[in-house]
């Protein structure tokens, strides 16, 4: 692992992108690493495109500024590829993990991973107010694709944050995402 990895999550308000960043950072901290997670600090409402960020490092992280040049981008909603330049600032050779059955048309020097997170969320009953909630599913895919944190650490955080049955469904979904994520 690099000294410092910077991750950007793209989602829609209400999909749980901010929570995904928080869970990721929490899992890294549980592994003894240093981490930060923060939202875009905007005033976005439900449904609007949002971003959230995380930093993970083997050393203490001193900066509190926004991330301009991420190493990894995670996209929670396949519709966003048409709305947002998700690779903006992504480092050359960087990793993109997409909620998509196939490559959503990403060009450039990036490693692209795909996972049908929406399908998994629906199958595992992760639907809140009619929205499939894909954040933990995408974390499973991210873990498998990058090894940035382990599935076990993620599961530990999820268990500490949600009631038992909800946690179980999320962990199941996360694991099946880890099994089905693939380069695309």
């Amino acid at each position: 692992m690099e000294d410092l990895l910077e991750i950007r999550f793209h989602g829609r308000g209400g999909q749980g992108a901010v929570t995904a960043a928080n869970i990721l950072a929490d899992a890294a901290v549980r592994e003894g690493k240093y981490a930060q997670a923060f939202p875009h600090f905007g005033a976005e409402r439900r449904g609007a495109p949002v971003v959230a960020f995380a930093r993970i490092s083997t050393k203490p992280i001193e900066v509190h500024s926004r991330i301009e040049r991420p190493d990894i981008v995670v996209v929670l909603d396949s519709m966003l590829f048409e709305l947002v330049d998700v690779t903006s600032g992504l480092k050359r050779g960087g990793i993109l993990v997409a909620n998509s059955k196939r490559n959503p048309g990403i060009e450039g020097d990036y490693k692209v991973y795909c996972v049908d997170a929406t399908g998994i969320a629906m199958r595992k009953g992760l639907v809140v107010s009619g929205w499939p909630v894909v954040n933990t599913v995408m974390l499973g895919a991210l873990s498998k694709a990058t090894g940035i944190v382990s599935l076990d650490s993620l599961a530990e955080v999820i268990s500490s944050r949600f009631p038992e049955d909800v946690a179980k469904r999320n962990i199941d979904a996360m694991k099946s995402a880890a099994e089905s994520v693939h380069t695309c």
């Binding site: 950072a25 901290v29 981490a35 930060q36 997670a37 923060f38 939202p39 509190h64």
Partner: peptide, 9 residues
């Protein structure tokens, strides 16, 4: 925001 909403250890 830069700290109030930033998770860190």
């Amino acid at each position: 925001f830069l700290m109030s909403h930033t998770y860190e250890p």
